[in-house]
């Protein structure tokens, strides 16, 4: 019984997602709203403003380089969390 209710819930979620997707613009079209003015600016002026011919690198390390700094800090935080869970804590385990 529980399993059937779960299945119905997931089917409902999939139905909601599919209905919303069907109202989106089609894939592979240049008229999609995400292909907007900022993309045109990156593609037209990216080379002269940053000097990099690969626009993805230009956005990653120049226009949005502060974002990339945050990314490296996320990795650093993951390492700190991993080490603090696995390398520390032998003493607390024996007390418990």
């Amino acid at each position: 019984m529980k399993k059937i209710i779960r299945l119905l819930l997931f089917a409902g979620l999939l139905g909601v997602l599919v209905i919303n997707i069907m109202n989106m613009p089609a894939i592979l079209s240049v008229d999609a709203p995400s292909y907007n003015d900022s993309i045109d600016h990156y593609l037209e002026h990216g080379v002269e403003e940053t000097g990099a011919t690969s626009i993805i690198s230009a956005i990653l390390a120049d226009y949005r380089s502060f974002d990339t700094l945050g990314e490296t800090i996320v990795l650093f935080t993951a390492i700190i969390a991993l080490l603090s869970v696995l390398k520390v804590g032998d003493s607390t385990r024996k007390e418990g």
């Binding site: 940053t50 000097g51 990099a52 690198s57 230009a58 390390a61 120049d62 990339t68 490296t72």
Partner: peptide, 18 residues
């Protein structure tokens, strides 16, 4: 000059750091 290995200012340096 765009397209050569020595270009794009700080981007290669940032890539090395990453």
């Amino acid at each position: 000059t765009p397209g050569s290995l020595w270009s794009a200012g700080m981007i290669p340096l940032l890539m090395i750091a990453i």
